[in-house]
Amino acid sequence: MAAESGKIDPMHQFEVTPLGGGFNLGGQEILFTNSALWMVVAAIALGLFMWGGMRRQLVPGRWQVAVEGFTGFISSMMMANIGSEGRKYTPYVFSLFMFILFCNLLGMLPLGVLGLHPFTVTSHIAITGVLALISFAIVLVVGFWRHGLHFFSLFVPHGTPLPMIPIIAPIEFVSFMVRPFSLGLRLFVAMTAGHVLLKVLSGFVINGFNAETLWLGSIVSVLSFTLMIGISALELLVAGIQAYVFALLTSLYINDAVNLH
């Protein structure tokens, strides 16, 4: 990547490049890109993972336990945050969680060693923003569907003194409207930052060994590489946590829509 100048561009990994297969949809050119490829890979990997847990045995095997661990994790989260009505939204939140998790983890695969370029789908605000908007739209639709105009009482927390309402309501409204942005930005920023950090450190490793004073460069390289190992582990954790946070916040927002305050 940008090897001709001897510099390593840590942002190059985020570039979406067309892989061909373009067609026209309502005047818009749609291309099959590396981003689309990794979405499909994530979907296939997720499908295989789930398929392995579909044996429906009474005494589950290891794979089935793993899959049931994920489903149980999400359904108990929905149960805890929303109540028994949360079961209706479990398919959406589960799909969201697993898709984000698989995209995050697949982006971490060290396929660069094999000459492939893994792409982290969730490092694009266009993707995370749309997912956040879908969650937000579900909240709006469910909220107005169930409560009608009463849904606006969400902006007046329970027990607010009457004179405070003109001040509290706009604040609540703004914090409500900011939700999709914070939801989308959080994931996008966490993924981008982690991958930039890893790429910068790997640039240090390469440039260190290429340095003129090799002994000093080697020290830098070894130290950077050690740090990379630790940060890779941290990024794996972040991949899980960010997927969890996205799903958790979505469930909390849906709870607002289902149960108001």
């Binding site: 067309p18 818009q28 050119e29 749609i30 291309l31 890109t33 979405m39 694009h124 266009a126 879908i134």
Partner: peptide
């Protein structure tokens, strides 16, 4: 100009 449409299209299809 293909970026947003492609991302949206494939995200919606896959998701």
């Amino acid at each position: 100009n293909w970026y947003l449409a492609s991302q949206l299209f494939w995200l919606l299809v896959v998701f």
